[in-house]
Design a protein around this nucleic acid. Sequence first.
DNA 1: GCTCCGTGCCTAAAAATCAGACACGGAGCT
DNA 2: AGCTCCGTGTCTGATTTTTAGGCACGGAGC
Lengths: 185, 185
Amino acid sequence: MSGLTKKAIRDSFIKLLNEKPLNQITIRDIVDDCGVNRNTFYYYFEDLPSLLESIVNEEFDRIIKEHPTVDSIEECLDVIIDFALKNRKAALNIYRSTNRDIYEQYQWRICHHIVTTYVDGNLAGRKVSPDDRKLIIDYMTCVLFGFNTAWLNNGMVDDLQSRFHRLYELKQGELEEMIARCEIK
Amino acid sequence: MSGLTKKAIRDSFIKLLNEKPLNQITIRDIVDDCGVNRNTFYYYFEDLPSLLESIVNEEFDRIIKEHPTVDSIEECLDVIIDFALKNRKAALNIYRSTNRDIYEQYQWRICHHIVTTYVDGNLAGRKVSPDDRKLIIDYMTCVLFGFNTAWLNNGMVDDLQSRFHRLYELKQGELEEMIARCEIK
DNA sequence: GCTCCGTGCCTAAAAATCAGACACGGAGCT
DNA sequence: AGCTCCGTGTCTGATTTTTAGGCACGGAGC
């Protein structure tokens, strides 16, 4: 049952992704790196994008599992930044490739999930219409995602954490204010 | 061709060896740890001792490969101590088990090999009978091995390196003296 | 006595990996 | 326009690896 080969392929791919951009990586590169037959690749994955997607989905599941709830805005940031930094070069190499959309989709899902658990935590015991709840979540996700995208576009050189922190200072209480405004008494 | 499962079994074994003594580790423990069928263990290894032996042999080959020649007595010590410390707990757990002899055999082989390359380096260009050469090597191996055994028996708490160094100070020039005495002019 | 557990071994089935081929299309070169 | 090289995606059939399940034996504990 082991799935060791699948993992080996994934690991080799990530390893190569830390060395060069996605569009310069061939399937042969990957199977050569982990010493596996080329057909074995196709046994497990449809093609290269689906390999990327599977890695990204598993990473997503792992994060969800590790963070069923998020208590503070700081924790939101930590999770998202930690994810981006974990394979810094790989992230950039994906992001800069022609398949950027895959990474963006993933990034969005992470942001959205983390924000959702955070907002829902603050909404506990209060009445807010589903539409308003969705609006709040989308708004905050956009902010996180936008900052993150800018950061990536900028080569991840800024201290994203402190920029977020400053933003949080400037807009402190915004979430509470939004909730209060649309709360159904 | 990959051999990933074999490696997984080895890794799990070493992992468990860092947790508990050898004679408390069952084959089921190992296969459970790496999520592999019990029969798969027997597919690759005869039994538990032969798994241990195979790990030990590979480690031996690795050390030989990395140290084709040894130039100084300090390097001797470094190699041997480094080996013992690399999986400190595992080494102790093997050593303290009923299969201690396996570890001792291995330790002896390491010592013997390292000493041999060192002595042969000093013998280059000089004529000494094969018997004398063997005697010198065995003598030095005994010293290294004996110190090491005492260290292990003592739970590896002493600073073996400094003890060796002191011994080297006390007996400095001994190798040269021995060689000179049996040199054939 | 008994039971429980680990070992070692076996067989047959299933899953995974392999070698080797093929057609297709793009890129670079003449 | 050719042509060649290379990567992709697909297929077939052989081979290797891994699995499930059973069985006999022996030691430890009750």
